[in-house]
């Protein structure tokens, strides 16, 4: 599992760097495929199997193809792909992104330097345990064994399966779910209206 995680993380980081550094957007889109494959592997490792399937279908199947279609439609000539910004702005943005990355890594590794209160909670197996109120202090916790993960339905389903997602989704999050469907309809209408010849 460790080995798969390291390989998937390396693939994700390398293909991410290749995505943002290409001059021609076609190659960026091509490098999105190993990125999405790596992300799918990570989701499977995190027991989010339904999310992994949706990731592959929506990103790898829909968004990637839409990007390729648009690149084909606008048909850029090589001389229209001008060189990007000058050295100094690029240097500063690189330093800024590196600092952002370093700050995130630092906070994640050391925790947030505030004093957290803890509260007494009852775990799934009935044992009482002191748990920090803020999730950020629990960064270094090991990920639990997938076989012991608690599912809300208390059935013998695996964590993150379709059944496991659907129960809470339709019990607690019905209104956001419906709003997302409205959003997708609006986005579809907007895309069609925007792309019409005469606006």
């Amino acid at each position: 599992m460790d080995f798969v995680f390291v390989v998937a993380a390396t693939v994700c980081i390398l293909s991410g760097l290749l995505i943002v550094s290409q001059k021609n957007p076609v190659y960026s889109v091509v490098y999105m495929l190993p990125f999405f494959l790596g992300m799918t592997t990570l989701f499977v490792l995190l027991s989010a199997t339904f999310l992994a399937a949706i990731q592959m279908i929506v990103y790898g199947g829909a968004i990637l193809v839409v990007f390729l279609f648009v690149i084909m439609l606008i048909n850029l000539k090589p001389d229209e792909l001008r060189d990007d910004s000058k050295l100094v702005p690029r240097l500063f943005t690189t330093i800024g992104a590196g600092l952002l990355c370093g700050i995130i890594a630092k906070f994640v590794r050391n925790g947030v330097p505030f004093e957290m209160s803890t509260s007494r909670v009852t775990m799934a197996d009935g044992a009482a345990k002191m748990v920090p109120d803020n999730l950020f202090t629990a960064f270094s916790m090991p990920l639990p064994d997938p076989a012991t993960l608690v599912t809300p339905m208390n059935k013998a389903t695996t964590f993150g399966s379709v059944e496991d997602i659907a129960g809470p989704l339709f019990q607690y999050h019905v209104i956001p779910f419906e709003l997302v469907s409205v959003l997708i309809v609006v986005a579809m209408l907007g895309a069609v209206l925007l792309s019409k010849k005469r606006v």
Binding site: D2, F5, G96, I104, L143
Partner: peptide
């Protein structure tokens, strides 16, 4: 082990920073 919550979060931070760099620095 390598596969724990902290390393997953660090990986997420690295990928987010790469994406943020692309949004800020690229002109295409």
């Amino acid at each position: 082990g390598v596969f724990n919550l902290r390393n997953c979060l660090i990986l997420g931070g690295i990928l987010f920073s790469i994406g943020a760099w692309g949004v800020i620095a690229r002109r295409n």
